[in-house]
Write a protein that binds this DNA or RNA. Structure first.
Lengths: 343, 343
DNA sequence: TGACGGAATGTTAGCGCTCACACTCATGGC
DNA sequence: GCCATGAGTGTGAGCGCTAACATTCCGTCA
């Protein structure tokens, strides 16, 4: 009674397997069999049991099942920066891939990046008896940090990874960046500025590496490197500086949001895009096509990434921890924000 | 099949309360007391138990606890359209609010809108023994549909709600729209076009109602009404039509993404913003300030909404199902995309 | 000294399910 | 007629925890 008052939630228990069994005139085990492996039950009994289930509105109790089997059909996902395009798309993709495989996905966000926070997030997921964890934390130390956690279940990394590692899935950031910068150099630009993401992000590093490599492959010197924080505001600040340098005819921004800021700054400064300056972004957010001018950018297949990450995770759950998948190749989308240099 | 063999995940069970008890030389119940209500245990024993917990790396088994108590400290959330700004912000906000209160939040997305899909989503959450469900599904019928579900736990609606209803939390969409349109009329515009969201969305209706009411309050006739689907592409299509109508000097778009499309179309058509046409959006996405020109828009406090929704849900769990909260008032942010009409 | 009472701890019985095994019948081969 | 066979079903234990009640301990007071 006292408990009832404090927590009405605990009051009403839904019908149990035993009640279904009684109603159908069978044992609870037969009900269980109907639910798990119907082939062992006579058709006639099966129908009777299903009818009883229907009438009672019975649903199998997840907690009891989990307690008995120790298998949750749930996988965990640790993520940070859900406000950014990439991370949120990845979270969504893993969730969907899980759904397709009959797995629930528990998402836990990292309020800030630290070993304690990561530990904490992973602990919370362990409490939910997840069978594997997908970590999408793009910070420099996260890979090493995650490896050092040493818990009993597989952990799959999906950001800041390199090809061929086990228990990872990823997109080839460097290749994407190269593609973007090559496009600009192909157009005739000799020097491409780069507005990079913050230095703690591996992704930012990889994209900058691609930018540098594209120049070096042609014996060119990369243009000025400015560092932003993925926000349009930081892109805007960088853009104002770039606008003052008449030598810069092309900019590769680390993501579309920063590219938008760059575009804004160039307009403000009276520089035309793409006549005076070409701009390329990264991510292909759904709005990029409607920036002014439409933004040339690099598209990543996040849902494919989600599927691969989940496949690797489930393979590891099944004991095949060595499975590796290739990095996914991004695609360049050429739109109105890029063109040949003026003279 | 022989499912057990295929899943080593079930093999390793982590240490149990009984093992901790043995190591500490107490009964399992004492361990339980240390974990739940430490005040009943002698300090000395408590320390011994905590040491044993630490040494064994013990973590309380969630399933067993849930099975015994029937209280999950988890609330569910049903959402659709995670790719849109509003819905995803709300999901994030509820998650954060839950975290702050020691509740986990399970998110399940609606692949499409139908009674079955809603039923299904709610069922999946019920399976997880959630104590309450927050539904953020903005479709016209969702309120009524949700009410008709009749399951044993509280359901809180957060979209498409009106003031004063129990078990709801919301933002005053109509007031926000009025504020936006009043701003344009105050500037001297006589007729404001509206690019609305799709007609199945209550939000779209409410915003259109505000747009209409603002005109009527001044005895003006509302400008043309165009219907989009929240995407920039639909805004772009609407914008192209608007651009051809020289009478239209101001546009109120149902969200920022569509506003971006409108801006793009106006630029393409050679119409200047705000000199020829003023544009207002809705949402204040983080990039709105860097659209060209910076977008005047209406900001909604999603995290406040998340907090209120959770507060209502938890109140209902405690038995106080009648608690109501006010609608949240949005704020108008005036930026460069609006100005007085040309002549 | 012994009965008393509150603090500290132990014991037992579930929660609802699965698993391993036991059991009951028909059926069929010898 | 007997036992092996296997399909179909039932029984009991146990997963790890909490809740209710039972018990022990020990200082206190008449």
């Amino acid at each position: 009674m006292t408990e009832q008052q404090a927590h009405p939630a605990a009051a009403r228990r839904s019908p149990s397997m035993a009640q279904v069994a009684e109603r159908a005139g069978v044992s609870h085990q037969t009900v269980s069999r109907v639910l798990n492996d119907a082939s062992l039950v006579k058709e006639e009994t099966r129908i009777r049991v299903l009818a009883a289930i229907e009438e009672l509105g019975y649903r199998r109790n997840f907690a009891a099942r989990l307690l008995a089997t120790n298998r949750s059909r749930r996988i965990g996902m640790v993520t940070a920066h859900l406000a950014l395009h990439g991370p949120s798309m990845i979270a969504l993709a893993v969730q969907e891939a899980g759904q397709a495989q009959g797995y629930d996905v528990s998402l836990v966000g990292l309020p800030e990046f630290s070993f304690e926070a990561l530990q904490n997030a992973v602990d919370r997921l362990s409490d939910q008896a997840v069978e594997a964890i997908v970590v999408a934390v793009p910070h420099k130390d996260s890979v090493e940090m995650t490896r050092s956690l040493q818990l009993g279940i597989p952990i799959v990394m999906v950001q800041g990874v390199v090809a061929g590692q086990p228990l990872t899935a990823g997109i080839d950031q460097e290749a994407g960046a190269r593609r973007a910068v090559d496009h600009l150099l192909d157009l005739g630009h000799r020097r491409v500025a780069h507005v990079s993401g913050p230095s703690e992000w591996i992704e930012a590093d990889h994209r900058a590496a691609g930018w540098r490599a594209a120049h070096e492959a042609r014996g060119l010197l990369p243009g000025p490197l400015l560092t932003g924080d993925w926000s349009s505001a930081s892109g805007h600040a960088a853009g104002l500086r770039i606008a003052q340098d008449p030598d810069v005819t092309a900019v590769f921004a680390g993501n579309d949001f920063m590219a938008l800021g760059v575009l804004h700054a160039l307009h403000q400064s009276g520089r035309r895009v793409p006549e005076d300056v070409s701009v390329v972004g990264f991510d292909d957010v759904p709005q990029a096509e409607f920036y002014w001018p439409a933004l040339t950018t690099v598209a990543q297949e996040f849902s494919e990434l989600g599927r691969r990450a989940l496949a690797v995770a489930l393979a590891a759950v099944r004991g095949d921890a060595g499975a590796t998948v290739d990095l996914i190749e991004p695609t360049l989308l050429v739109r109105g924000s890029t063109g040949p240099p003026a003279h």
